[in-house]
Structures are given as structure tokens and as C-alpha cells.
């Protein structure tokens, strides 16, 4: 606040006189970070906890602004409408990778430069405590006997729940009643109130409730077991068909527009790479069940491609894509 006040006083006095005289190397002014999701959400929290470390390294402030809407498409389009000078960062989650097949936008992360893919979440299946099943196998058997009776929370087409459910339905052909919620937070609350029976959610969002015994975990959608849930076997042991989709999970990353000068990209990549290694940040991510990735460049591009191809084909096969992934040259995963 004090700094801001000084800036103001100085700014008001000298503005105009000194315009254009500042010539230094990148970054010569404050940056702007556009967060795709609202205040208090996971994307917001992850970005606000890693960026201050990057600010220290860059030596400038990154002013973070939440620009919500259109499952992140508004923020993505906004950043792509700005100058490619490295002063506007997109701080987003996995959603843009589905824009093309869902017909939401004609750009995705493939058309941007990844600065850092920070971390990945693991999807899990949770159920209300008194549900008559404890594992994925039992869930499948129960649902086959009582088709349509199990109510699952869903969060709109293209979201994590819809994709994980599409995977499950493709492998087991079972029938649920999907009750829509606008986010996994409200859906997990409804699960505790008994309004729904099961819910696919990201580990981090449900872990505290599981630890407190307010809901039970019935499946871990990963190929390896998690240190946070040592007693839960990975889903591939129960339903081997999942092997072809995994590892898969929502992620968080920082991106800039294509054609941003190499100097800016290098500096930003270095800053975020170091920031993501900060022990505080690592500790935070571990506790919330996120797997730190901290990748950039080709490695990040490869991960993003693979995510896009798995998800796009899953939603296309499940029948809720507007366009075929083939139209955009997205290859079917082997």
C-alpha cells in the first residue's frame, strides 16, 4: 500500500514529462496475469500461491485479475487479443484443450506458448458414506442391477466429471442419473447432504472431507496408488480398460500468446520454473493431492497434446462433441 501511494504521488507529479524515456530490458513494467476462473477456485489459489515467488525473481509485480466466463474462453480470447509482448499472461486450467471439439473457440493451448505446466490433479470417485458399495467393482455391479437409480453429480459437458464418467460408461456400459451442479464444490456439498450418491472429483477438492470421514473414496483414477490414499487401489486394477486413458487429469498452467519475443519467454520460463520449486509451494501442492509437474517447452507441449487427444476423443465417442477431433488434426490416442 505504501509503495502504491508513493507511486501515485510521484505519478501524478511527473506523468507525461517522463513518458517514453524508460528503456530497459524485459520486464520493464508490471505484468498482468489473467486468471480464467473466479476468486477462491483451485486455479485462482494455485496461481496466487506460485506467482509471488515468480515476482521476486522477475523483479516486477504481476497484477492478477480474474476474468471469468465461457469455461475460460473469455480470458483465453482476451489474452490472445493483446500484444504479444510478454506482458500479459494467461493463467488457466485444462479447459481450453476441449474448446475446438466442443465448438467454444477456435484457439487452444496448442496455439499459445506454454511457460509452465505447474501441476496435475488426480481424479477420484467418492460416494456418500451410507452408499451400498465400497469399490468400483461393487458400484458397477450395483448399478447394473439398479439401472438409473444411482445419482451422480455432473458439472457440464467437457468438465472433469463428464470426461471421467464418459470413460467409465465406455468401459462398463452402465446407466446413471446425472444431476447437474455448477462446480465440484457445490456438488460435493450436495453429496454430504445426500442429494447425490457418487461424484467423480479431483483428489484435492475432496481429500479433507475424506480424511474427516464425511464421504468415502471408492476409486482412484490413476495407474499408481496415491500416498494420500494408501488403501485405495488404482482403478486400472479393477477396470483394466482404463489403462488406455491414463495417466490423465486436470492441470494448471501459465501461457503467453504466440510470437512473444524469445527473451520474454525465456525469462518467464526461468522465473516460473524456479518459483514452482519453492518448498512452500511444493508442500502446499502435496497436501492438496496435486502432482507437481513444473514442465515447459517441448515437454509441456507433448503433455498438452496427449491430454487434448485423450479428452477430445472421449467426448467425441460419448457423443457430446460438436466437431470431430479429426477436423483439427487431433490424433486418436493409441
Amino acid at each position: 500500500m505504501k509503495k502504491a501511494l508513493i507511486k501515485t504521488l510521484a505519478g501524478v507529479t511527473f506523468a507525461g514529462l517522463l513518458a517514453g524515456t524508460a528503456q530497459a530490458q524485459y520486464p520493464e513494467k508490471d505484468l498482468q496475469g489473467i486468471i480464467q476462473w473466479g476468486a477462491g477456485g483451485s486455479t485462482d489459489t494455485v496461481m496466487r500461491s506460485v506467482t509471488p515467488h515468480a515476482e521476486d525473481i522477475l523483479g516486477r509485480d504481476v497484477i492478477m485479475t480474474n476474468k471469468t466466463g465461457g469455461v475460460g474462453a473469455i480470458a483465453t480470447k482476451y489474452v490472445n487479443a493483446m500484444k504479444a509482448d510478454g506482458y500479459t499472461l494467461l493463467m488457466g486450467a485444462e479447459n481450453p484443450q476441449m474448446y475446438k471439439v466442443l465448438g467454444l473457440a477456435d484457439i487452444d493451448y496448442g496455439d499459445m506458448i506454454p511457460i509452465n505446466v505447474l501441476a496435475r490433479g488426480t481424479p477420484i470417485f467418492v460416494a456418500r458414506n451410507d452408499a451400498p458399495f465400497n469399490t468400483m467393482k461393487e458400484l458397477v455391479e450395483y448399478t447394473k442391477k439398479h439401472p438409473g437409480e444411482i445419482k451422480t453429480g455432473s458439472t457440464g459437458p467437457g468438465g472433469l466429471t463428464s470426461i471421467v464418467l464418459a470413460m467409465l460408461e465406455a468401459e462398463t456400459h452402465i446407466d446413471f442419473t446425472g444431476v447437474p451442479y455448477d462446480g465440484d464444490g457445490p456438488a460435493l456439498t450436495a453429496l454430504q447432504g445426500g442429494a447425490i450418491d457418487i461424484m467423480p472429483a479431483v483428489l484435492g477438492a475432496a481429500i479433507e472431507h475424506i480424511k474427516a470421514g464425511r464421504m468415502k473414496v471408492i476409486g482412484l483414477v490413476d495407474t499408481q496408488s496415491s500416498p494420500l490414499l494408501p488403501d485405495t487401489a488404482p482403478i486400472t486394477e479393477e477396470i483394466p480398460g482404463f489403462n488406455k486413458y491414463l495417466p490423465w487429469g486436470p492441470f494448471f498452467g501459465v501461457f503467453v500468446k504466440k510470437d512473444t519475443p524469445a527473451e520474454a519467454v525465456e525469462k518467464l520460463t526461468a522465473a516460473y520454473h524456479e518459483a514452482a520449486q519453492n518448498p512452500d509451494f511444493k508442500d502446499l501442492m502435496d497436501k492438496r493431492g496435486f502432482t507437481i509437474m513444473n514442465i515447459s517447452g517441448d515437454e509441456a507441449a507433448k503433455f498438452l497434446d496427449s491430454y487434448r487427444s485423450v479428452s477430445s476423443w472421449i467426448v467425441y465417442d460419448a457423443g457430446f462433441a460438436k466437431h470431430s477431433p479429426e477436423e483439427f488434426g487431433i490424433k486418436r490416442p493409441e
Binding site: 476468486a39 500461491s49 464444490g185 456439498t189 472431507h209 508442500d283 502446499l284 497436501k287
Partner: peptide
């Protein structure tokens, strides 16, 4: 569980400060 939009941000703040907001 947040009771409104502001407490949702508070949960984020607790989390950033190393606490585990939850039951």
C-alpha cells in the same frame, strides 16, 4: 464449505497460508 463467495476466497487464503481448510 464456503457459506458465500467471500468465505470461498477465505478458504483459498487459509490454504495458501499452509492450513487445511476442511472438516
Amino acid at each position: 464449505i464456503p457459506g458465500d463467495a467471500v468465505t470461498a476466497v477465505f478458504i483459498g487464503a487459509l490454504f495458501i497460508h499452509g492450513l487445511n481448510p476442511g472438516p
